[in-house]
């Protein structure tokens, strides 16, 4: 699980503009479909459809989301950077755990972190604090405790 940890460039402007666009998309989805823009809920509803019109908007929204990198490439001339500093095993284990966690926790960074926090939902605030805390602890353990035990980092 341990590989090299290289620093990444601090990008306040790109990240702020990206955040503004994410927020704008959340407001737009509420204005059009009357729904929270939570990636977990949209994906779960797409995977286990209740009726065809409910499935259709989710499929179209997901297609739009996955087109984001292409729009980015059209604007900047290159695909967004996707650097994965962990092994395939970590991606599989982590992905499976994320799937279980977001299902039981009823949301993720977009649903709880952006949409719920901005509605001042107490559930979302508690959820966001919980997963941010757990992520930070996990990263610390993997990089600074477990990493030293196995002699890496």
């Amino acid at each position: 699980m341990i590989t090299e940890f290289s620093p990444t460039e601090f990008t306040p402007w790109a990240s702020l503009i990206g955040g503004l666009l994410i927020g704008a998309a959340a407001v737009l989805l509420m204005a059009l479909q009357g729904r929270i823009f939570g990636a977990t809920g949209i994906l779960a509803g797409f995977l286990t459809p209740t009726n065809s019109s409910d499935w259709a908007w989710r499929a179209i929204l997901l297609a739009g989301m996955a087109s984001g990198p292409l729009a980015f490439a059209a604007l900047t001339g290159h695909m967004p950077v996707v650097e994965v500093p962990v092994s395939k095993t970590a991606l599989i284990i982590g992905g499976f755990i994320v799937g279980i966690g977001v299902s039981y926790g009823s949301g993720c960074t977009s649903g709880h972190g952006v949409c719920g926090m901005s509605r001042l939902s107490p559930r979302s605030i508690v959820a966001t604090l919980s997963f941010m805390f757990a992520t930070a602890v996990t990263v610390y353990l993997i990089r600074h405790v477990f990493g030293q035990v196995v002699g890496g980092a």
């Binding site: 970590a90 755990i97 966690g101 930070a136």
Partner: peptide
């Protein structure tokens, strides 16, 4: 649990 997976 989600946080643990995200951190991994």
């Amino acid at each position: 649990v989600f946080g643990v997976g995200w951190g991994i």
